[in-house]
Computed example of a mutant assay.
Amino acid sequence: MTKISELPRPGTVRPWWMLPVVNAQGANARLPLSHLGNLPRGAIALSLASFIADIGSTSDADPGAGVLRWNNAIQADSTMIFIDDVDVDSGDHSALWTTLSAGGKLYLYDAGDLDVWQEWDVLGAVDAAGYGKISVSHFASAGTFSDDAAVVVTIQQADVTSGEHIPAIRTESASYTPVLEDRVVQMDVASANNFTVPPNSSVAFPVGIALEVWQQGAGQTTIVADSGVTILYDADDTLKLKGQNAGCSLRKVATNTWRLIGKMEAA
């Protein structure tokens, strides 16, 4: 008999893999690994919901009842996944999108071919008209979903016990426009520089998100609203940080509107 130590090593364990469980309903009950207690994991926001893949379009629009789509024809290169509010079983998930935060996970697998799956890091989400726009970063995948494939979706919130929710700090040495992953930016620049807040059409930060900006270098940092963006701030202030080591917080309160509070130069 082969010893356990001589058995081949298993592949990567995936959070949506099922464990058999015993209950009064019969022997075929299953539980995803992501749902088990005493494991480093965030709360399950959406569990094993069924959707249909649409690979005929990459447009940012409602994909239709029970449908999801990617914003790139090469699925693994996508930065957003669009999911209808209603799944194929008529489950309504419209209240979910605004609860998603950076640090969570989106798991997709093909119900007809378990060798096709995708795991995504969630960067944020927007509640659009009839669908959710989930900003994602590709983590791992195998295969490609075909058109009309049955896609099983699980969404996991950030794991607040693991430290994954703690934002990374980006340091920039020149004027900078933030990207979707940013939460804290240090401007380490010797001369005057700008931190430009982009319009939603360029970088779709979810409403409610906050960005911290710090002036680490000697060069004064000015917060600049790009075309179409409104920054609300105290009338006694300017949009210039007061000096080295001063900082501010920008909170997105509407599609192209931000509120600023911080240590700013007086008007």
Results as ranks from 00 to 15, higher is better:
Thr12Pro: 11
Leu211Gly: 04
His165Ser: 04
Met187Asn: 02
Thr2Tyr: 09
Gly217Phe: 04
Ala29Asn: 05
Val197Pro: 00
Arg9Cys: 14
Thr58Asn: 11
Val185Lys: 14
Pro206Asn: 02
Asn256Ile: 08
Val67Gln: 15
Asp60Thr: 12
Phe139Cys: 10
Val253Ile: 07
Tyr176Phe: 08
Gln215Met: 04
Ile55Cys: 14
Leu123Gln: 09
Pro63Glu: 11
Thr161Arg: 14
Leu123Trp: 04
Ser135Ala: 11
Gly104Asn: 03
Thr98Val: 11
His35Asn: 12
Arg170Thr: 14
Ser249Tyr: 15
Ser78Leu: 04
Leu48Thr: 09
Ile209His: 00
Asn256Met: 10
Thr144Trp: 04
Ile55Ser: 14
Phe145Arg: 09
Leu33Tyr: 02
Ser249Val: 13
Gly208Ala: 02
Lys240Ser: 09
Asp62Trp: 05
Gly208Ser: 02
Leu46Asp: 13
Val189Thr: 05
Gly11Ala: 11
Ile4Lys: 08
Asp89Asn: 15
Arg259Leu: 12
Ser249Gln: 13
Ala45Leu: 12
Arg170Trp: 09
Val126Glu: 10
Leu100Arg: 07
Ala49His: 08
Gly66Gln: 15
Gly243His: 01
Ile223Thr: 09
Gln215Asn: 05
Pro20Met: 05
Gln220Phe: 13
Pro10Lys: 12
Ile169Trp: 01
Gly104Asp: 05
Gln157Val: 00
Gln157Met: 03
Val151Asp: 08
Ala204Lys: 09
Asn71Trp: 07
Ala49Gln: 10
His93Thr: 03
Val88Pro: 10
Val185Tyr: 14
Phe145Ser: 05
Pro167Cys: 02
Leu19Gln: 11
Pro167Ser: 03
Ala150Cys: 12
Gly11Asn: 13
Ile261Leu: 15
Ala45Cys: 13
Pro8Ala: 11
Asn23Thr: 01
Leu96His: 02
Ala168Glu: 01
Leu48Trp: 06
Asn28Lys: 10
Pro15Gln: 02
Val253Gly: 03
Ser50Asp: 11
Gln186Phe: 15
Asp87Asn: 14
Ala29Ser: 05
Arg14Cys: 09
Trp16Thr: 03
Phe82Asp: 12
Asn194Ile: 02
Arg183Tyr: 00
Phe205Ser: 05
Ala53Phe: 10
Leu232Gln: 15
Arg170Leu: 13
Ser59Cys: 00
Thr154Asp: 07
Asn194Cys: 06
Trp97Gln: 05
Val224Thr: 07
Gly262Gln: 07
Thr99Tyr: 01
Trp258Lys: 04
Phe145Gln: 07
Leu106Tyr: 01
Gly130Lys: 11
Gly37Asn: 06
Phe205Val: 00
Gly124Lys: 09
Ala266Leu: 11
Ile55Gln: 14
Ala73Glu: 15
Asp147Ala: 07
Pro198Ala: 06
Leu114Phe: 05
Ser90Asn: 15
Ala142Leu: 10
Ala76Pro: 03
Ala266Ser: 14
Leu33Arg: 03
Leu239Ser: 01
Ile55Glu: 13
Lys3Val: 02
Thr161Leu: 07
Gly56His: 14
Pro10Val: 10
Val207Pro: 10
Gly124Cys: 06
Ala95Arg: 11
Leu39Pro: 08
Gln215Trp: 04
Glu119Ile: 06
Val179Lys: 13
Ala218Ile: 05
Arg14Phe: 13
Phe139Tyr: 10
Thr257Leu: 06
Ala235Gln: 08
